[in-house]
Design a protein around this nucleic acid. Sequence first.
RNA 1: GCGGGGGUGCCCGAGUCAGGUCAAAGGGGACAGGCUUAGGACCUGUUGACAUAGGUCUACCAGGGUUCGAACCCCUGCCCCCGCACCA
Length: 954
Amino acid sequence: MTDIKVEEKWQKKWQEADLFESDPNDKKKIFITVAFPYPSGAMHVGHGRTYTVPDVYARFKRMQGYNVLFPMAWHVTGAPVLGIAKRIERQDPWTLDIYKNVHKVPEEELKKFVEPEYIVKYFSEEYHDVMTRMGYSIDWRREFKTIDPHYQKFVGWQFRKLKEKGLVRIGEHPVKYCPECGNPVGDHDLLEGEGVGINELTLVKFEIDGEYLVAATFRPETLFAATNLWLNPEADYIRVEVDGEHWIISREAYNNIKNQKKDTSILSDVDAPSMIGKYVKNPLTGEKHIILPASFVDPEYATGVVYSVPGHAPADYIALADLKKDVKTLEKYGIVKEVQAIQPIGMIHLKGFGEVPAQEMIEKFKVKNQNDPNLKEATNEIYKLEHAKGVMSNKTGKYEGLPVSDARDRVIVLLKEEKRGDVMYEFSERPVICRCGTKCVVKILDDQWFLKYSSEDWTEKTYKCLEGMNIVPGEVRANFQYYIGWLQDWACSRRIGLGTDLPWDKKWIIEPLSDSTIYMAYYTIAKYMKDIDPEDLNDAFFNTVLLGAEPTSDIKIDKETVEKIKDEFNYWYPLNWRLSAKDLVGNHLSFHMFHHAAIFPQNKWPRGIVVFGMGLLEGNKMSSSKGNIVMLEDAIKTYGSDVVRLFLMSSAEPWQDFDWREKEVRGISKRLNWFIEFADRVEEINGKVELKGHETAPEVSKPVNAWILSQLNMRMRDATKALEGFQTRKALQESLFLFKKDIDHYFHRIEGMDDEISRKEIGKVLVHILNVWIRLMSPFVPHAAEELWSTHGGEGFASEASWPQYDSDLIDEKVQKSEEIVQELANDINEIKNIIGVKPSKVHIYVAPEWKWKVFDIAKEVGKPDMGRIMGQAVKQNVHDNKKEIAGFAKKVTREITRVNYVGRIDEYSVIKESLDYLSKEAGAEVLVYDEPTYDPEGKSQNASPYKPAIYME
RNA sequence: GCGGGGGUGCCCGAGUCAGGUCAAAGGGGACAGGCUUAGGACCUGUUGACAUAGGUCUACCAGGGUUCGAACCCCUGCCCCCGCACCA
């Protein structure tokens, strides 16, 4: 690892030199941003990956000569910290534990966490500190928080613009709501029921004496097969007034419904048992259905009234079966005959099932009675199957032949239009309990503001924006395509949380995902804000600066400053790259495109997106709430930030999930040490190293040196190409891991080349390699790179050195093949030794004769493994006088030409002769090479073929 | 359900778009050897099976197909992961 003190030294030097403060100049620019953090906890290694990727790219591009802007800010708007502050205030033990032990907040500081603003202040400062210690090349002059008054002016402008363009509307919206606190609640405010969704149910009004028994269902299309209604005689039912009608529902249901319907009131109690046996009218078919008792009906769920479809609902089927057997109850209500007469009705054709699928499901899941837990599974299974594959039967009138899903949608529309039905909302799971201990309900807010993402024009424009963007990795483009079309109107106002007031309706706060869609533009002007009074930031100012409008007299800031700010924005915008996590594809990243498309002209639309994968810890999902995380700060202390960076960049590509494994991190640490020590080895061989002036490769005469230079340039080429596409892992595979293998081999190979000329050439080669290699590593391990660069006489900062340019002339296939031949020879000799179990004293090598090369040339030209043509050509050209030998060899070539990467003729005799010392050492025997088989007692020379010289051992 | 992505050797993971240089990179682990007082670190080798001359066989979820040739292309089946909203 790089010593922490050394890392801090360089961080300070970079800062003193203002190295990463980027202002407009005449160079080409790159503007890269990453989703800013919500600082409600400490940074873990997962965050480390998120911010290291843009840093590596920024450093890479800076070295390539671009003017790079990489800024950072803090997203502090939203509700989570409010909940945290409340829980800290209440001394909630779980919260205190997490903040003390996982986020390592000192006791003194924790006391101040009762103030939500203090929490985000505390953690944003900690983030800033840790980011600095990770060596990130951020322009900190542009740092801000999303509750800064200047920023709020910017967001206010943004929303007025959207409203002007008709992209905002007002409407209804269901939310989780705590009746006790009188507020909508987020997941973080819940004691129980985190992540529970809100489902829309259809209400069906069954008429009885001018009133309605209102049942709730997910499957209104099954009304055709309804046989009866269920009430729970144990439950409390009441008569309520809704929109002028009288509804009969359970008392608990009313507590929910009253939050969803206007002007409701309780009229009177209803005696449920007395309802049993009466008849109601089916609003769709007009049929009469009897009301029956059922214990499985939960008065707390939906309306507490259920209509029964025993043909398709397993619960109804089994409840009916139970009831038929329960003679006592039947007699009590006097409904014996009526119930016995009820038969399940089938109304949906489903492949693989008969008339009554509910019955088959019950048998399949072995459901015993209406309280059996398997009942839920059976219900789910048939729900899914019928929804996906069911077709309406001839019992459904005009719906016959329609897929179930279509029929359902039509029935819902019909019921609503004719006021024979309605909708209500219910949690997908229960219970949902607020931190205050109260059961939450679904409430409909009726003056909620929406961003109209469903607008066709807007969507079209956004598609156009997507078209012009680079998406990394490419597969995610299909995702974007889907989400942009799928997005419905988005509720963009909130009652609680930190944030910016909705400009035209101050009782609302702008929803936190909506207030951070175009903030990248704000970075370009943020550094000017400290000298400007936020009150002077009016629409006239933003219109001129960001949209290029003619300046008007409304602008309160002096002309020159406005001009300067405007130029800066125009220099940096459009944004080149936006980086964010996978799970934000469907919201933040899509909003980002929507808002840019709406507000800015096309030439300012974003140009690229990179999507991140998630982080695992020893194979398990990282989670702060479960304490299953490694703090970035701790990782830096243990390994140094260079190691952390290197691990995060090398273990997976940015869009893949990475897995923080202690053992592998240690492996990376060793690898970095090896790299640092490599510089010492170069010095040992070469003497004092002066890197300056060794940017270009030296002239070499030895084949090994040509080989290592060829490898070096190939690695440079491949690493550069990988980095251009954000493939940090690939880039490191090439530039660190594979090239280290090359160097290992090189050292192995040059061992013993001790003569003056060899040493001198090797020294020069190594110094050049060191010069290049430090620069290749600089974006990944900037501290180690600076340290090596400065101690070995590099010029200026390694962070500012130029990115190494590969020389394609030095990448030589034949040079690489030659080395391969030598290495294969050494391997083959050892393999033969192993097989025959004999230690030879002499090894004779025979290279292939001229005519065999000719056959290879012919095979290469033919291109396909076509024995006939190769043979024919060889005979025609008369390459060899022995036709039988030609035939035998042609057969072999046909088999092998595709397996050998034939790059043309190589003077194997010279190559091998040059490597005899090495081969002898490897073989542990004297090695001799022949261009003619002058000594060949066993005729082994016949085995020789191009790239595979024959071997004879004795 | 809708949408997206996958199944490769003990584990992680490259390779699949552009079929042959693939018994399949790299890392981790394991084993053996060197070094060392010892451990760690470091270096070398092995890590599908068989093999007394560099070879052969079996292999990339399963089953078919296309091709001189398939981890890679096509079809079928099985299994796994992620997102689905008002939340950062």
